[in-house]
Write a protein that binds this DNA or RNA. Structure first.
Lengths: 346, 346
DNA sequence: GCACCATCAGAAACCGGTTTCAGACCGGCC
DNA sequence: GGCCGGTCTGAAACCGGTTTCTGATGGTGC
């Protein structure tokens, strides 16, 4: 009855765990091994010992130390999850999906942000390895495939937004090109022919694929590609705002804008609003992602939906499968067009 | 030259670490203790041994196992961070701030979501304890103060959004009442007298404080409080949408709406938009939080700013101080009004 | 030249679990 | 009654680090 938490801050060595497995063992009059076996159910133990131990466990509210267990077992029940920014609404959705699935499986997630920066990404991944994570999930990211494969030698890695074939690796690519095609077909289908495109940052593979889809759709419809209708953004609201302003000032005409992602579209909205232009009356706008906020933008945004949350869930499933030694058979969630109020027939 | 990663998945026991401290020691011809001392710089070691060991370390790219180190040291350089939902733009900002500060200090964050649910919150906190975190940061949350204090016996706890005095505990309260007062004074100052309020969920302390601020401001201005002008929401867009619709249909008149938070305001925006009402021409709207998206809403939202990111940074500083045994002297970031385009003088 | 002290390195114990290995005990069978 | 086999338990080793404790070495002072 007198277990006290070890004194804190009172000089002396670091605070240590008050009640350990050996304490329980002593109290129940058994050996440490027996307690361990009962907790994990690895070996049959007689009922009387079991109940004595269980009584001691509940009495002290004992729960084994995860670090010690991780050390002994060689696994930590932790997955390292690398996104680019924890406060980006896009990644946040994905993280949510990951979190949920991992929780169900008894795993915890160690989230870190790569800041769209190769160096930071590599630092995070190293940190994951050092902390002995059992697997890694990587949301997009700039880090080269070779580096990723190197990490995959240590621990299973699931990547989204790219294709990568290597041992202990699984990819959930995003069909950017098809998504862009769907968006453009929607616009073309409702009569638009002069369609501007606000791209992501120049060197980004997703951005290039979406641009390729934009061009392919124009080709399909026999509309000539006019580079003056392409402005580059930065995947964020601000880039969308600036790009749209530039387009408007440049004098090229367009009846619709396809934005590389929803956040860019929000920026475009604001630029149009400031010029007194109405969406969709004067300009139709299409986004890409279907962030939760897009249902509440004014007007609600027509966009290509890729369920990032589902993507996160599937990434979690895939990494768990890899850990279990199974080969995942999991597809990326499909892209589809969600028509709301930001586009209109002309 | 022949270190191989232990075979994975090939039956046999779990994959284990290929290169350990003892491997380095053997290679450099010294004892394990010496390697440890060199890595941590705890004791002076002769230069020649040091360089031999360092050579071996870089050759094998050795980095000590965090779990083992954590076990030996009794600390994990990990902070448990409990928010309510990782994909909420509000908490995401805070987590970002936490992440940044912790990273600077060499700590990692274990993020978990409490889902506005006492049971989940407690489960998360227990998980933190089991995993041996060195400290806990808790963003708002429904868990009772008594339970929080219980956890604080095991490990330092920093809470935001509430006041709590206990050992190994630090609070960063949010001045909800003052924030609400600022919002209301702004509206009243530009001529509004019939001001609706969309509250958060009924039993939430922050919601109650903001309501109190709303009432206090009315009192200051000698405006009678009319409960028909208060509608309850759920802190999310949907609640704002529904509450605003109810207000509009109820027939009570108002020239402005003060929303308990920005997300509620976004919902209000959409409800007004659907009714063909213009913000701010027909109705002025004020939010609370100043989420990043509020700069890009249409029109950009006037709101009370509380820098959640700063709050997160300060929470991180506070928990680090507690861990170091220092008593933090850190204030919550101030609330202030940010006037944009959603309010106008009448 | 010898005693003494400071400095540095290694052996061993430890952190808190898990697991191997060996032994105790029991029952069944010849 | 003795032998065999199966079941259950405990002692000890192990995971990969850190730290205490002890011993060796070299330098200094007298």
């Amino acid at each position: 009855m007198s277990e006290r938490i070890p004194e804190r801050g009172k000089r002396g060595p670091r605070p240590r765990r008050a009640v350990t497995l050996r304490v329980i063992a002593r109290e129940a009059g058994v050996s440490a091994s027996t307690v361990s076996r009962i907790i994990n159910g690895t070996v049959k133990v007689s009922d009387e010992l079991k109940s004595a131990v269980e009584a001691a466990i509940t009495k002290h509210d004992f729960r084994p130390d995860a670090a010690a267990r991780g050390l002994a077992l060689g696994r930590t029940l932790t997955i390292g999850v690398l996104s680019q920014a924890i406060d980006s609404p896009f990644y946040a959705e994905g993280l949510r999906g990951v979190e949920r699935r991992l929780l169900e499986a008894g795993y915890a997630a160690l989230f870190m942000s790569g800041n769209w920066n190769e160096v930071d990404e590599e630092r995070c991944l190293r940190e994951f390895i050092d902390r002995g994570v059992d697997g890694i999930i990587m949301f997009s990211g700039r880090l080269g495939d070779a580096a990723v494969k190197e990490f995959a030698k240590r621990v299973p890695v699931v990547v989204t937004g790219r294709s990568l074939r290597a041992a202990h690796t699984y990819s959930l690519p995003i069909d950017d090109r098809r998504g862009a095609l769907l968006a453009m077909r929607h616009l073309i289908g409702i009569g638009h022919r002069r369609i501007a495109f606000i791209a992501g940052s120049e060197n980004h593979p997703d951005a290039l694929e979406r641009l390729a889809g934009y061009q392919a759709a124009l080709g399909e419809a026999g509309i000539p590609f006019d580079p003056r209708r392409v402005a580059s953004g930065d995947w964020h609201e601000e880039g969308g705002l600036l790009a749209t302003s530039r387009l408007l000032e440049s004098g090229v005409d367009f009846t619709a804008i396809f934005c590389v992602n929803d956040q860019t579209a929000y920026g475009a909205y604001l630029a149009l609003f400031r010029k007194g232009l109405n969406v969709p009356k004067d300009v139709s706008v299409v986004g890409f992602d279907d962030l939760p906020a897009s249902s509440y933008s004014l007007p609600p945004l027509t966009c290509v939906r890729q369920s990032v949350r589902t993507l996160g869930e599937r990434a979690a499933e895939a990494v768990l499968a890899l850990i279990a030694g199974r080969r995942p058979r999991i597809d990326s969630p499909p892209v589809e067009i969600v028509v709301r109020d930001s586009t209109r027939r002309i």
